[in-house]
Each structure stands twice: as C-alpha cells, then as structure tokens.
Design a protein around this nucleic acid. Sequence first.
DNA 1: AGCGAAGATGACGTTTACGTAATTCAGACG
DNA 2: CGTCTGAATTACGTAAACGTCATCTTCGCT
Lengths: 129, 129
Amino acid sequence: MTQDTMTIRQMCDAFDVTPRTLRFYESKELLFPIRDGQRRLFTRRDRARLKLILRGKRFGFSLEEIRQLLDLYYVDDSQQTQLSQTLDIAQERLSDMERQRAELDEAIDELRNQMTLVGDMLSSNKPAA
Amino acid sequence: MTQDTMTIRQMCDAFDVTPRTLRFYESKELLFPIRDGQRRLFTRRDRARLKLILRGKRFGFSLEEIRQLLDLYYVDDSQQTQLSQTLDIAQERLSDMERQRAELDEAIDELRNQMTLVGDMLSSNKPAA
DNA sequence: AGCGAAGATGACGTTTACGTAATTCAGACG
DNA sequence: CGTCTGAATTACGTAAACGTCATCTTCGCT
C-alpha cells in the first residue's frame, strides 16, 4: 500500500519534479511537509495539493493564484467567517475557467480547420511533383 | 470603417497592451509592422496575429510556442517543404489542447462540488448562530 | 522658429519560478 | 571510526516577459 508519508526523493519520482521545486513550494506555503528531525516528510495532503498545483500550472495559473485556489480545497472550521468571501473567489475562478474552456473549444476548432487546409495543400501538390 | 493600418497607440487602445509590449513582440518576430519613416504601422495581419498571441497567452503558451503556432496560420507557398513538419507540431498542440480541455472539465466539476460543500457549510451553520 | 505630443531607441530593472553550486549535517554501514 | 549517501541550507544565477527611465526624432501647430 502507499505509505502515509513520503521522502522528498519519493515525491520527486512520483510527480516528476525536483527537490528544489518541492522546497520552493514549501517556502511559498503551497506545501506543508512535516519534519522528522530536519528531514521533510510529505503527507497524503501534500500529495493531493501537489497534484492540484501541477494541474493549475498546466492551466496557466500563477503559483500565487494556485495558493488561493488551494485554500478553497482545504477549509478548516476556524475559517467560517472567511468562507463566503472564499466562495466569491471560487465563483470568479469558475467563471474564468468556463470562459477559458469556451475559448479553448474555439481555438481547437480553428486549429483543426487550419490543419485541414494545410493538409489539403500538401496532398494536392505532391501528386504534381 | 476600420483603417488598413494603425499606429502603436491605436493598437494599445484596441488591445489593451502597452507600446513596450508591441515593440517587444516585434523584436521577437511575432509581429511585423511596416514603417512610415521610423514609425510603426500595424497592418490587419498584425492585428490578427496579436489577437492570436493574446489568446495563446491566456492558454499558458510561451511566446516562443505561440510564434510556432502563428507560423501555421500564415503559410506562404515558399514553405512547402516545411509544411508537413509544421503539421506535426500542430498535431501535438492539438493533442495538448484536447488534454487540457479534458482536465479543465474535470477541474470545473471538482470546483463546483467543493463550492456546493462550502455553500452547505455556510447555510447549515448560520441558522444556529 | 519654437514647442509639445507621439513615437523610437537603448539600456537597466523587476517578477516569477525555479536551476545550480557550495557547504553542512545526520544516519547507515563496513 | 571514517565514509558514503540522502537531504538540508544558503545563496547566487537564469530565462521569460515585459516595466521603466533617459534621451532623441519627428510631426503638426502657432
């Protein structure tokens, strides 16, 4: 079974990142590994967060934006007063993402068309050569 | 009617970018404004390209990646030999975008769920207070 | 002729997101 | 006990994408 905590190297292998990256994310308060002496131990929670971080990056979010999004996923009961504010942020992000999805659909269509055109140019000229 | 060419300021107003940005894009060969003396004049083609550049950025592409994509959109006949190679690049980009689209769907779903949960927490605790 | 606004041209500065040593430390092992 | 290995810390370096002066031209007016 998957262990409860992982060393930095295990994390690197599992997620294909460097130790530097993990330490950097910790310094930016995106991850909170516990310590065994001075060594970092990454918990299941850290792994879940890292997964979201890497996804966020693929979407073009900055680490700071990702940090705010992560806060939404890990809400503890002491934050109740901030919840509705957080919800507002989430609503904006959601709108952003839906806009982005619409744009992406459009862009995919355009790219497909363009590729068809280029493909036609290729196939219509080759026979002549 | 929209003019055939635009000054740098008109471009900035139209696309909400700075002059520096436009000059920078020219230096990176993303735009090719013509010159009137030493002044830049941006053509319809530059406008089309800039639109694609800004969209590409929203998708998280680097300027260099965008430059390669732009090449796909502005193919002249002298490039025939490179076309199929370009097509390969396009195919990869397309796959990337489709993967991103799938991930985005998933992320939107998760975010929606999370928001529902948080919303429930809010509405179930308020009455008690 | 003179002036102001728009634009051009360097050139150095800045932020983000790490890379890359150099050095240190702590536990494992022969 | 010496050493090797994995990891930590510190700190300087870097690429991308512009921002921000400081000059310098060049029109268009008055």
